[in-house]
Design a protein around this nucleic acid. Sequence first.
DNA 1: AGTATCTATTAAACCGGTTTAACGAACGGT
DNA 2: ACCGTTCGTTAAACCGGTTTAATAGATACT
Lengths: 348, 348
Amino acid sequence: MATIEDVARASGVSKGTVSSVFSKKRPISREVTERVMAAAKSLNYKPNYWARSLASKATRIIGINIPGEKFKFSQFHLSLLNGVLGVCYDNGYRLLVNTLPLSYLNRTEHLSTDPIDGEILLDPQTDDPRIAERLTGEMPVVVIGRPAPEFENRVAYVDNDNVGMTVETTRYLLGLGHRSFLFLNAPAHRTVADDRARGFLAAASAAGIPEASRRIVYKPDADSSSLDFGYETTLRALREEPDISAVIADTDTMALGAYKAAESLGIRIPDALSVLAFSDDSVFSPEFAPPLTGVRLHAERLGREAALLLLERMREDDKTVKRTIVPTDMVIRSSCAAPTLPYGGIHS
Amino acid sequence: MATIEDVARASGVSKGTVSSVFSKKRPISREVTERVMAAAKSLNYKPNYWARSLASKATRIIGINIPGEKFKFSQFHLSLLNGVLGVCYDNGYRLLVNTLPLSYLNRTEHLSTDPIDGEILLDPQTDDPRIAERLTGEMPVVVIGRPAPEFENRVAYVDNDNVGMTVETTRYLLGLGHRSFLFLNAPAHRTVADDRARGFLAAASAAGIPEASRRIVYKPDADSSSLDFGYETTLRALREEPDISAVIADTDTMALGAYKAAESLGIRIPDALSVLAFSDDSVFSPEFAPPLTGVRLHAERLGREAALLLLERMREDDKTVKRTIVPTDMVIRSSCAAPTLPYGGIHS
DNA sequence: AGTATCTATTAAACCGGTTTAACGAACGGT
DNA sequence: ACCGTTCGTTAAACCGGTTTAATAGATACT
């Protein structure tokens, strides 16, 4: 492919002039501009992205990173992505999925800076080396979700009010009369699982629910199916402790697992078991039988706000640490009801 | 950030030696390697990605491109992405979402080569300038979906057998006794819509179905909601032509729209209306009421095969044009049945 | 001992752009 | 006619790596 040199030679001007014609960072006469453009067109010339990035120290690419090996994007990530992409699109940025195996990154021959101007980190964990690493470099970063406590005031992030949201939903269930819960939580090492557990436990213990009746089970890890986890955990829990009258699920897919477990035990929802999910805004939740009550997290907006925060941070060289909390909305449908049996009663 | 020069100076060797220590493309003595690595560590040095790309003419990034302005990734795209990402992950490639507004790309100051080694093009259209453009450059490309006829033998692609699959499903419905159809198709300019329309029409006219009874409606365009499109189109069609006893939907979301239309007209599925979808492998289709009959397209596998094909093409400099057809599986659940009314009968 | 071979290292050229500093020409003001 | 600007252009330095060609030193071969 033709280089800037070729174009310069063909149109009888210097490299610098051709550069200015394309970058438009300096005025060039109408006549010369036309001559250069004509030469460029006939040579099929386009400026080389890498050379340009090297010289101008900017790539107009932002990265998005997910921890963990061999991950897959979930429904929730999809909405996040769409939010981020919308902002990228509006601002002329490309989006790089910047996750590689550690076994790859750790090899000397692959060690390098990242090919991006800034990065969004997803799914922060309680012990998450990514943030510290990005901060020692000068890479602008925005986290989606609450980072570990030692970084909460050192890195920008976007999150829902997970604690508050969980308190609210737990109170809702308490208000309906529930006294024994199963909480299907996110994987244990993720900060979001922590926040939700805290909210749940706070609300439950404030209402005098004994420890045995607020059972929390953490999803083993990313690669296991949410559906299966929801199904099997609910099945086991209901067998071991028939008192349980309400299941709080991390996602709508997990909730679906709970539905299936209830069905296979012959337990009706919401009559004998209430189910609720911190769901994404899936088009399907209203179609569950019965329609699923849950909380809208506005994943797309989380993504959008994160991208906006990142671009702002990249633009100004202002190291102010900003935070955005995206509100959640509880959507009451028909999967929760007052428990039919009084506290202490037994199913079947 | 420290450069290779700094490291060379600090460890008392030349730039070239430092380069070789990191790239491992040439042997360096144990002793020198250690000295260089020590200096690099103390300076917190990492090779610069863009300088490296410029010199070595490779980025280890592959792109994925979707046509159209302000698109959003769908469920189907999510599965594709996961398939592509799995291959990227295994092979040490990053994935760049390489879609930008035309209004951005067309401006002189943004014109440039793409920062990638190869690209996957999604959702090919009947008149799609992307392929021709990539071919004139030397960018390796794989298309997911059938490209326009003039490129079918010039570019590698991965696809389902959309024609065959549609013939099969149409025959299935014909076999149940249906004689009047509504086909909710993908947007008209996409080649997949073409293929499916062809398969449907071929099967229907071979069975002697008159033209008026094989109605095809194309989704207006990407930004409209599939759910709404399915709902409104089905509603209108059933009102205009109560004969219709089967709806074939492009996606499960569209099918859900058809379900809702049926519900609001008081029509029961599958008794009075059969619905079928070329669905993705959504976990939710089995949960529809009634469970949705459809076709598995194996989106994740489409993504995987495309990525593998692309890497192969990038590795060897072999311009052989390869094609991969991923098989589809029809999954019969309970949303289709023999129509209750004889051909020519009228609802309500 | 003399030559051929192999190894590790280096200086310099190169990848393809951007940017700085210098400069001549045209312009405006007095 | 002279000076101070402004404008458009250029040569050269620079961004931070890789690669080539040359070289010195060690090893092997006869």
